[in-house]
Amino acid sequence: MTQITPKITPIYQTSVFKFEDLDAVQQYFDEPGSRYLYSRNGNPNSDELAEAVNRWESGAGAVATGSGMAAIFAALLTYCQAGDHVLCAADIYGGSAALLNLELARLGITASYVPFEALYGLRPYLQSTTRLLLCETMSNPLLRVVDLGAAARECHRHGLKLVVDNTFATPALTQPLAYGADLVLHSVTKYLAGHSDVTAGAVVARAAEDAARLRQIGTVFGLTLSPMESWLSVRGLKTLRLRVAAHCENAWLVAEFLDEHPAVAAVYYPGLPTHPQHALALAQGGGRYGGMLSFRLADDAAAVNRFMQHSERFPFAPSLAGVDSSCSHPLTTSHRALTDAQRAELGITVGLVRLSVGIEPVEELLADLAQALE
């Protein structure tokens, strides 16, 4: 029979793998990674995705998970148990806050929220059981940029781990492990897969022992990603560099346009020279600033509705990072789990609109925004 050597890894759509005899089973346990047993424990497709993300982030090992939320859960459990305390940046994805407030608190893991300005002076927020700081490279939805090197030094000064959600920036712009982060996580659903057709996550460790712990958590809790979605994510990841470059270029031009529009009160994009962390974003992003931005209309639901109803190229779709542009409304979607006080402190009001700028011809995006804002 002619030997078949595929260029692309096939989809191993199987829940279980066969063994010849008892010796083969013993080999599985004696030599980790030598073969596969059951797809919850590992599958060639999910392992290929984990290895690809690990290479992008220059880590010691990674695990692919069934969603970005599963990735956050796995990352926190790598370092925490009942009775422990977590510090979390106040500027954080609403789902992360919901996980901490609603579920991990129920398991005995408590959390305190640190204002952006205090991330490099954590002492007032420390408890004897504090284990880590969770933050985002670029915050959702206000695009504040964390100085990862300073945050890592502050964490390690106090014996804490730094866990960074790098979803907005992607490793094509920033690699947090290089700045001293201990774990970096992604909602692969977003830029890494890139086509709005996958739900997946990934966590990458700087240390091999943390990578082993991640794999154990993924297996025991059943967080493993399916073969088909792993395969789709790997396929998307192959064009990450090209897609991110196009996202960044379009978003920069959109941000400049909105910044000059009379209907827009403010624009939040690190690429604008007026952004408070513009210089930091320039350094950490290699001259690019990502494809996400937010802008502020009048705090009037009717005004926001008119924009959404008239826009044809930015449909209201509460996610991000697909090749097609979209808009979202943090107050009523991603950040609705925050308290009223938290949202007010962050400035997440009814007039705040978040844009995920795609890779379409930018002149079409600008024309659509112009007519929708009239």
Rank of each mutant, 00 (worst) to 15 (best):
P262Q: 13
T137E: 11
A52W: 05
D299V: 05
Q284S: 12
H329Y: 03
H156K: 12
E31G: 00
E209N: 09
P318L: 15
R343K: 15
G218Y: 02
L173D: 07
L355N: 06
Q277V: 06
A64C: 05
A52Y: 04
T2G: 02
Y93G: 00
A181N: 10
A208L: 13
F314Y: 13
G347E: 15
K238Y: 00
P330L: 15
V16Y: 00
A50K: 02
N54M: 09
L22F: 11
A266L: 08
G351I: 11
Y38A: 05
E51M: 11
L232R: 10
S311K: 06
F29Q: 09
V254H: 02
P262R: 06
L355F: 06
H310T: 05
L352W: 08
S230Q: 11
Y93M: 05
A263H: 03
S233L: 08
G95N: 06
L282V: 05
F73L: 15
Y289S: 11
G222Y: 05
A317E: 15
S34T: 06
T333M: 05
R336E: 13
Y28V: 08
L365H: 03
E374N: 13
I4H: 07
L225P: 02
Q3F: 06
R296W: 03
S139D: 13
A111M: 06
R157H: 07
V353G: 05
S67H: 04
F29H: 10
V198C: 03
T174M: 13
D299I: 10
I92C: 05
G285H: 08
E103F: 08
A172L: 03
H275N: 03
G149H: 10
F116W: 03
D84E: 11
W252E: 14
F221I: 01
A52M: 12
T5R: 13
T2I: 13
G271K: 06
D84S: 09
S67E: 10
A193T: 00
T239L: 11
D30L: 15
E364Y: 07
A172I: 04
A172D: 15
H278L: 11
R206W: 01
S15G: 12
A151E: 09
L77E: 07
F29Y: 14
F116K: 01
N250Y: 11
G358L: 13
H85C: 04
G66R: 09
I348F: 08
L297G: 03
L214I: 01
A370S: 14
V203Q: 05
F221N: 05
A367E: 15
V86S: 02
G286Q: 10
V163D: 01
R213H: 00
D23T: 07
L133F: 04
T129K: 08
V204N: 02
K18M: 10
F168L: 14
D165Y: 04
